[in-house]
Amino acid sequence: MAHGKPIATTRSATGIPTGKLAVWWVIASEIVIFGGLLVSYLLLRVRYWDEWGEAAAHTNVWCGLINTIVLLTSSLFIVLAHHAAEHNDTKKAFRYIWYTIAGGAIFLCVKGWEWNNEISHGYTITANTFWSFYYVACGLHGLHVIGGMVIMGIISFQARAGKELHRVELIGIYWHFVDVVWIFLFPLMYLANQ
C-alpha cells in the first residue's frame, strides 16, 4: 500500500482545500485586528478633529503615494504568478513571485526612509496619540509585509521545482489582504490631513 503525503488538501468538510480555508481563517482573524485598529482610529480622528488633522499634516503623502502604487502593482504580480502556476509555468511563476517580493522590499525601503525622516523631526511613537496610531498601524502592516515576503521566498523555490504549486495561490490571497489593509490605511494616515 502506497503511503501518500498525509496532508488534507481537498477533503475538508466544506469542500474547500484545507490550506486555502486556513489562509481565509487567518485573514478573518486579521480583519478583526486591523478593523478594530482602523475603527478606533476613525473614532479618535473624529473626536480630535483639529489636533489629529494637524498631526496628520506632517505625514509624507508622496511616500504613501509611491507605496500604494508599489503594493497595487505587487498584487498584480502575485495574481499573475498564481495564473502562471495554474498553468504549470513554473519559471514564470517564480519570476512573478520575485517581482512581488521586490515590490515588498521597495515598500519597506520607502517606509524606512519615511520613518527615519519623521523620527528625526521628533514625530516619534510617543509624540501623541496620532503618531502612536500611525506607528502601530503601519508597523503592524509592515510586519505582515515582511512575513509575506519571507513566505513568498520559500514558496518561490518550491514553485520553481514544480512542487506545491497551490501554495502560490495561498500566499497570493494573503498578499492581496495586505494590499487591502494598505488601501484603507493610506487615506486615513495620509489624505485626512486637513
Binding site: G15, W24, G35, F177
Partner: peptide
C-alpha cells in the same frame, strides 16, 4: 484578485461574520 467571487459560500460566511464581529466591537 483573491477570487472571492468564485469561492464557495463558506468563505463569504467567514469573511462577513468577522466583519460583523468587528462592527460589534
Amino acid at each position: 484578485f483573491m477570487h472571492l467571487n468564485t469561492e464557495k459560500r463558506y468563505i463569504w460566511y467567514l469573511f462577513f461574520s468577522c466583519l460583523a464581529l468587528m462592527g460589534l466591537f
